[in-house]
Nucleic acid binder design. Structure first.
Lengths: 159, 159
DNA sequence: TATCCCGATGAAACAAACTTGCGTTTCGCA
DNA sequence: TGCGAAACGCAAGTTTGTTTCATCGGGATA
């Protein structure tokens, strides 16, 4: 459980705006941009990492470059919404590497998945494993991405 | 346009696996993990960044910590699929900060959006701007995320 | 088979960035 | 007015990133 965050001031937000665009930016440059010394920047970053405001620092890999050029969305509807079955589904989706993102949602579906695969054959095999293999999936709808218009985990920051 | 990548060997893939989990890992440690010297690691990373295999280095921000606790999926169906209108929609979605991800897809919808907002009021306002404001949106379906089961841009890497 | 060339490597030197300690300032509150 | 907590900047120390350079194969060619 992340420690509660004591709320962020405008310095923190300005720092976050930079880091979520490029976290290799030197603290010195960040400092110049926000009018703070490098150590001050460093302390704030450290605090936000410890409190969970910054959830991670990662390199973004181009899927096509590593043989996973196809992105697919799937809406999954379950037969039963018993808690244990929901949890079992969450667990299975989480453990599947091809499932890049998984959300439990309200509405006409129960889950929405973002899946990354090498080709449609791989997707077909995955559906067999994840959906047909489970007798708790009532149905699922597939959307193949023709264009990844905007991709990222960037969050809009308040002013 | 990213320069073509000459294909990656097992060293590159091992390095990528580490970086997409934590890109603050020192090159020295990466070197130990993959049996390479730090300079060798550094050259490979640099090359992969230049060829576009590594598309970015970013901090992941917890949306709830910056006042955007609600994640919403939207399937958007357009009235017309004329190229210019598609492109106009792509442009508008790309420019909207609350639209974190946008995909142009095949199937029963034209676009799938991942949206981040502070509350349902903000979402309602956004729908007015993006969908009702445009007379090219035939309909849209909303899915509110109750649980962000798995989030990230991690790509499965070949062995 | 010998030779040349190319690309990648590791060791070491170097530069840059990160991190810590410390004295000072600021600000809220008694 | 005085006290304490929190944050600051500076400067020193440490770690990390980067460049240089000599060397090591692997392949193509003669």
């Amino acid at each position: 459980m992340p420690p509660s965050s004591p709320s962020l001031d405008s310095f923190d937000l300005a720092i976050l705006a930079i880091l979520q665009r490029d976290n290799t930016t030197p603290q010195r440059l960040i400092g110049e941009a926000v009018n703070l010394s490098a150590p001050a920047v460093q302390r704030r970053i450290k605090r936000m990492e410890q409190t969970g405001v910054v959830a991670g620092n990662v390199a973004i890999i181009e899927p096509a470059a590593v043989g996973q050029p196809i992105t697919i969305f799937v809406e999954v509807e379950l037969e039963s919404e018993r808690t244990e079955l929901i949890d079992a589904a969450k667990r299975q989706f989480s453990q599947t590497p091809e499932v890049q993102q998984c959300y439990y949602v309200t509405g006409e579906a129960d889950f929405i998945l973002v899946i990354t695969v090498a080709d449609m054959g791989a997707y077909e095999a995955l559906t067999r494993k994840l959906f047909f293999g489970s007798n708790n999936v009532r149905k699922f709808r597939t959307f193949v991405a023709m264009d990844r218009v905007k991709v990222g985990l960037t969050v809009p920051l308040p002013d």
